[in-house]
């Protein structure tokens, strides 16, 4: 089947089998290996991307279901060589060890902050319920998301992505990380 999908701002057209999962389309057809597969059961969230602006587990969506739609992956977050504020906050707060869960965590964190730009700790934990981490014990991940919220206020999502440069500058002035 022919599908046309915009991924990280670039339009792609490909012939794919209906059974092809979106995550395999991203990795194997487009070479976007930033999005990873961590389980067989739709539990881990490592494969999280945005489909038309909402977070989804790309192992649980067919590539053909993305036809005519827009996908955003972790690879599209940085702008002009600058990390997205959520990425920067993960870096600064040591929110990863092996890093396998990180692409999904970051994509889900961006979604969560778009919905709730000023979450408390409980809201962050609930928002990341669909993302499992085998290494960190979550503490620094939660800290990073709260830090990112502070850096990005007044809001995340598409607006904040445009504010990345500004946010990064504020971070520098404030001395940002550790």
């Amino acid at each position: 089947m022919r599908v046309t999908v915009i991924v990280d701002g670039v339009s792609y057209s490909d012939d794919v089998e209906p059974r092809l999962l979106l995550v395999h389309y991203l990795r194997e057809h487009l070479g976007k290996v930033g999005t990873v597969v961590g389980c067989d059961t739709s539990n881990c969230g490592a494969c999280t991307v945005h489909l038309d602006g909402r977070s989804v587990k790309s192992c649980s969506v067919l590539a053909v279901q993305a036809d005519g739609r827009e996908v955003a992956t972790v690879e599209g977050l940085a702008r002009d060589g600058r990390l997205h504020p959520v990425q920067q906050a993960f870096h600064d707060n040591h929110a990863l060890q092996c890093g396998f869960c990180t692409p999904g965590m970051i994509m889900q964190a961006v979604d969560l902050l778009a919905d709730d730009p000023d979450p408390d700790e409980e809201a962050v934990r609930a928002g990341l319920e669909g993302n499992l981490c085998r290494c960190t014990g979550y503490q620094n991940i939660v800290r990073a998301v709260l830090d990112a919220a502070r850096r990005m206020s007044p809001g995340a999502g598409p607006e904040a992505e445009r504010l990345t440069d500004e946010a990064a500058q504020v971070t520098h002035v404030a001395g940002g990380g550790q």
């Binding site: 969230g45 999280t48 909402r54 977070s55 989804v56 649980s60 319920e129 669909g130």
Partner: peptide, 9 residues
């Protein structure tokens, strides 16, 4: 029910 990603779909 489930988690935010699953609730989106």
């Amino acid at each position: 029910v489930a988690d935010p990603q699953v609730r989106h779909r």
